[in-house]
């Protein structure tokens, strides 16, 4: 399974190379997209800086540990690594906040720990629920969309459990 995962990226790159070799203006498209990606990353820096500072403060103040300690008896019964909680809370709310929480977690437990792997699956398979819903419905006259939010929240909770389970299944050796 791991070979499959690590071969995925070169395959995609070769496919892109094939398109670029055949198409006349395909490399222009690459340059355009690359520049766009860099612009996006640059525009993220201010909010990322603010949130990483805030999370770094949270860690230094001992609040993160407190939260982890308080929730760990419940979570360990459910099979969820308690370190994932800051990410699970921020994930539905804001993209940059969850990026900050995820990178803080990677630094704290190491990128190949069980908590980090569970967090990576959660981060990759869920999206900023509240932000997306707000943006989508702001374009309409809809005032009542409770059903959408409730289903989204149920889905987000399920995603958390599922990522913990998948992390345990796929990465048995991780501690």
């Amino acid at each position: 399974m791991e070979t499959l995962s690590s071969l995925a990226v070169p395959t995609v790159l070769i496919l892109a190379g094939l398109v670029m070799a055949r198409g006349k203006n395909a490399f222009d498209a690459f340059l355009r997209g690359g520049a766009e990606g860099m612009r996006t990353t640059f525009s993220l820096i201010p909010s990322l800086t603010a949130l990483i500072c805030a999370l770094s403060m949270l860690r230094a103040s001992g609040a993160a540990e407190l939260l982890t300690e308080l929730t760990s008896p419940v979570l360990s019964v459910l099979g969820i690594p308690p370190e994932v909680i800051p990410l699970a809370i921020t994930r539905p709310v804001s993209g940059s906040a969850s990026t900050a929480a995820f990178s803080a977690l990677l630094e704290e437990t190491g990128p190949d720990s069980l908590a980090a792997l569970c967090a990576a699956i959660l981060m990759g398979s869920s999206d900023t629920l509240i932000y997306v819903m707000g943006m989508y419905f702001s374009r309409t006259h809809v005032k009542k969309a409770r059903r959408a939010v409730v289903i989204g929240a149920v889905g987000a909770v399920m995603c958390l459990f599922l990522s913990a389970a998948l992390a345990r299944i796929f990465f048995r050796d991780a501690a």
Binding site: V12, L13, L15, A16, V19, M20, G23, A26, A29, F30, L31, R32, G33, G34, A35, E36, G37, M38, T40, T41
Partner: peptide, 11 residues
């Protein structure tokens, strides 16, 4: 981000 956004744009 530069590499992937470029590749995605190619696709």
């Amino acid at each position: 981000m530069c590499l992937w956004c470029g590749v995605i744009e190619v696709f």
